[in-house]
Nucleic acid binder design. Structure first.
Lengths: 338, 338
DNA sequence: TTGTATGCGTTATCAA
DNA sequence: TTGATAACGCATACAA
């Protein structure tokens, strides 16, 4: 394990001081009018010895790590997996590394992981928080550290975020169900304490009310297959009549719903119509193809990353931004006209 | 942005030297027989001032970052997303952070990202390399840095890995197709220069030969939806008869195949039988449910992480291990008996 | 039992 | 035009 070369090695070899080496290597040669041959020699030696600055030392000195903490509720969920991919790639392009954390949608873990990341002196945080509990986030902002929310955000207040226009998506989706004659609709939701979920439920409710429908149900409490499955089971076993349509607030929930329907030998859309958030490639090939509300996940990822890093580099005082990008409703074949 | 407290602050407040503070905080109080009251006072002050050691400074001093570089070909692919999730969670449990990199299955990017991670002085690397090109990996190993391969590995040589028994999986899957009477089978493969792909193709080929089948085709070159789609299009448009069964070497490829079959109005399994690597929840609800070869992705992730960190902490000289975990074939309804 | 002083590899201030 | 030196925050060899 040969010792890595540092500026001292180069300085000795070039017969100059480490100061000079540091300056030349940082492109400050011209500024300090360091002689042409000296510069050239230093560059050559650095090249030849394959010199790489020690980033840890740089970080310590400059108080800048060029690392961004990315905190997500569930990297396994395809929506967040895609988000992670985009953010990682975009950050790299701008010279930043991503330190990843998975909170498993648990607020205690979220707070612990945030601490851990801050201890690592990351320059900024991108997070999809798992609830509306925001004290830990506000503290970070107060400390001056840059932070941006993706997908999940805080309702009220002014913590910057980039997300989907969830209200619009849910409203339009529900309207579509209503226009197809459905009057008995259930909505299976995810984590109830998250903004996207709250907005989606609101859009759903408003649309129902607007159409004078009083017969709607809201059930469930997490963005998981299991939740979709269990809630559908309950829905079907209830003494009340089964809904003619179900709005699933995530693709994971949809999968659970499908499982329950299959077990009950109910077919889509003949017995039950379905519409789901989070467009996924597989939806085209389900039986039947499932209509969905496609979130602009790529745009959310690239935009959030860009804005965050821009503000980091311009040293703008405060990041202030609340962006809701419109989702697109993709019609397939899972809703039946009544 | 108030200045963060450091051991000097505490030392001043406690009226002792920074050495003593450092020792006490690192649990070396007893060892150096530092007086009980002194210890207590230091702990109290640290607690009260919410002291957190500066990890960057520690890293510089100890030459240990407690960070692991995770390099994957495509975080968006559900297989790798799950892997990333597991590895991130397991690493955290052991006190390590994950620095994430996505190579987009590109060897040049892979090498560049490796350099970048090494420059960050990560303690070890977990990687699913995108090809058999391994010079950059071997160099890292020679330097003494720990590295472990997951899923993708290098055939021959002794670079440690944890992966699926891909040969077994493909052989058994193909055998199943053959036992159902199929004699004209196509295999749509992924990146041809990766070990899993090579082993799967080998398993496929061997099974075919064993059954005396000469009529088999191997097509494709990447683990993407598009590849599955295009290759199926070609297969169907060829002057030769279409295969009666297709073995898809990933779930992404499967989705492409489904698209092409749908466009050609061919149904599964009546016209074409299907079998796919990478079990995914949605496969249960496709039309028809697709039988698959389920890789033990959780086990791969936890085991690789455990072994790597163990070896890191025991300071064992060399990591030497090649593990192939058996996949499980999950039978659904996508293969027809001829 | 505690402290002084050095070094990890940089960058930046000040002096020459 | 260049260089000594301090500082970033911590851990530790050596002294006392």
């Amino acid at each position: 394990m040969q010792k890595r070369v540092n500026i001292k090695t180069i300085a000795d070899l070039a017969g100059v001081s480490i100061t000079t080496v540091s300056r030349v290597l940082n492109g400050l040669g011209p500024k300090y009018r360091i002689s042409e041959p000296t510069c050239k020699r230093i560059f050559e030696i650095a090249e030849e010895m394959n010199y790489k600055p020690n980033i840890i030392a740089q970080s310590l000195r400059l108080k800048k790590t060029n690392a961004i903490g990315l905190i997500l509720p569930d990297i396994g969920n395809p929506f967040f997996a895609t988000l992670a991919r985009i953010i990682t790639i975009e950050s790299k392009k701008r010279g930043y590394s991503i330190i990843l954390a998975d909170t498993e949608d648990n607020i205690d873990l979220e707070q612990e992981l945030m601490e851990l990341l801050l201890d690592r002196n990351i320059d900024a945080i991108i997070i999809a928080p798992c609830s509306q509990t925001r004290s830990h986030i506000e503290e970070v902002i107060k400390s001056g550290k840059k932070i941006i929310l993706v997908d999940r955000y805080y309702i009220g207040g002014n913590i910057p975020y980039v997300t989907t226009d969830n209200y619009y998506g849910a409203y339009e989706a529900t309207k579509y169900l209503l226009q197809n004659g459905h009057r008995d609709i259930a909505c299976i939701q995810g984590s109830t304490d998250t903004a996207p979920n709250i907005q989606r439920v609101k859009g759903f409710t408003d649309a129902c009310k607007k159409f004078g429908v009083k017969h709607f149900k809201i059930a469930g409490d997490s963005f998981t297959i299991q939740n979709g499955y269990l809630e559908t089971k309950l829905l079907l076993s209830s003494s009340m009549s089964a809904p003619t349509a179900i709005l699933c607030l995530s693709s994971t929930i949809l999968l659970g719903v499908l499982k329950a329907l299959k077990e009950a030998d109910l077919s889509v859309p003949d017995n039950v119509s379905l519409l789901s958030f989070d467009n996924q490639p597989f939806m085209d090939y389900l039986n039947p193809p499932i209509s969905s509300i496609a979130q602009p996940v790529n745009e959310i990822g690239t935009f959030a990353t860009k804005v965050l890093i821009d503000s980091l580099e311009e040293g703008r005082k405060k990041l202030n931004l609340s962006v809701k990008l419109r989702p697109q409703i993709i019609l397939r074949n899972s809703v039946r006209l009544i």
